[in-house]
Amino acid sequence: MTSPTSLAFTLVITGAPYSSQAPQTALSFAQAVIAEGHSIDRVFLYGDGVHLASALSTPPSDETNWSLAWAEFLIEHGIPGVACIASALRRGVLNSEEQQRYERSAANLVTPYQLLGLGEWVESIASTSKTLYFHGEH
């Protein structure tokens, strides 16, 4: 489906939902990337951005659930989502493997995210055409 002029993007989100606009801006941008006929290689969550991968985020029903909105977008378009494992563990975002390893009471990593190291990030940046960062306010 890609035309010769289509590019592949890597998006890195470092701003948290509800305390920054980063996940919102990044999602609108990502939707436009697809609409313009380009593709997205991977979406990385780093630093406070990993809060986007928490399944326990429960905003009021009349507000957008950014965790859910992003997860649905990634699944719909088959885009791999990666949360930095070092950022995630510190902020209480765990998959079942890490839950067992550290004997915590719950796992809360949203499908389809994976917890991976920074090697994945380096690899993606090296092979992608454009990398964009969506930062918080600081």
Partner: peptide
Amino acid sequence: YNGMVKLTV
């Protein structure tokens, strides 16, 4: 946002 994509491309 489509314009933003074009600028980045």
